[in-house]
Design a protein around this nucleic acid. Structure first.
Lengths: 145, 145
DNA sequence: CTACAACTTAAAGTGGACTTTAAGTCAACA
DNA sequence: TGTTGACTTAAAGTCCACTTTAAGTTGTAG
């Protein structure tokens, strides 16, 4: 009879597919201490649903701009217990602040891109005289630069 | 009497400061064909207001996710004249589409970050029982993952 | 006139986050 | 039972966008 399986387990390849990474990337993350894999009798890694949730959470943090070394710090503090919650909170709030700064910057970049696209479209459809410089067009649209 | 200066001109160092880059970066951009500098009698570069506007525009495009090689393509098409406007427009629209995709992704990452920050804050101020797992908290907040 | 800062070039180096390679072990299927 | 695909490790390689170095020339302040 097979051992009772209370939770499904995955090889590194299955796991990588589930979290949309590659097996080498998983090994790399493990080498950086961002996750720890269990091993079976022959030394092969296996992963569980809990690992999936954890990696997905890490990828969300990473997606907000945290570097591997930021994540390392976060994980280290996490392993130290509840007395490091203020540290973790501060790290996440700094991440949030940095994120919002960049977010506002790229919004401005996007506005310029959109304006340029519209400028080309108007040029194509002949709605301007075809001679107006882009800088003038931007000024007309209410941008400073 | 000094030569009539119809437009102010800048050394590479002044120019770099004005556009918030370094002189080596300006030279690098020039080497990539993203801009062309004029030279004085002794071979030194100088730049004008027009160059400032151009580089700032390039940096806006770059800020929306265009790579140096995308910018190179854009500049090449630009130099070829109006018959490449459809190419440029398509490039910018692809950039825009890629941008919006990433934009929506990072918005989701930010939501998770914000939720985690609030979760820590509630944990700190004792507003939950201090035992609720984050996954449950997320579910309660209406997130899928 | 002398320093010294700023410029010039070509080429090599850097950082972050993986990715690829090499050499070998293990497992599942026909 | 054999072969093929997935796993193991350590180390080297890749990509992008600069950045730094080295060796030399030029402009300007005192």
């Amino acid at each position: 009879m097979p051992a009772l399986k209370t939770e499904s387990s995955y090889t590194i390849g299955e796991f990588a597919d589930l979290v949309d990474l590659t097996a080498p990337t998983i090994r790399y993350y493990e080498s950086q201490g961002l996750l720890k894999a269990r091993r079976n009798d022959s030394g092969r890694r296996y992963f569980t649903e809990t690992d999936i949730k954890w990696v997905k959470f890490l990828l969300h943090l990473k997606g907000t701009g945290m570097s591997i070394s930021d994540l390392k710090q976060y994980v280290t503090w996490r392993a130290m217990g509840d007395e490091t919650i203020p540290n973790r909170l501060a790290l996440l709030e700094n991440t949030q602040a940095d994120f919002m700064k960049k977010y506002r910057e790229v919004q401005h970049h996007l506005e310029i891109l959109n304006d340029k696209i519209n400028w080309y479209k108007q040029k194509e459809t002949g709605k301007t005289d075809g001679q107006e410089p882009f800088a003038d067009y931007l000024k007309r649209m209410g941008h400073k630069e």
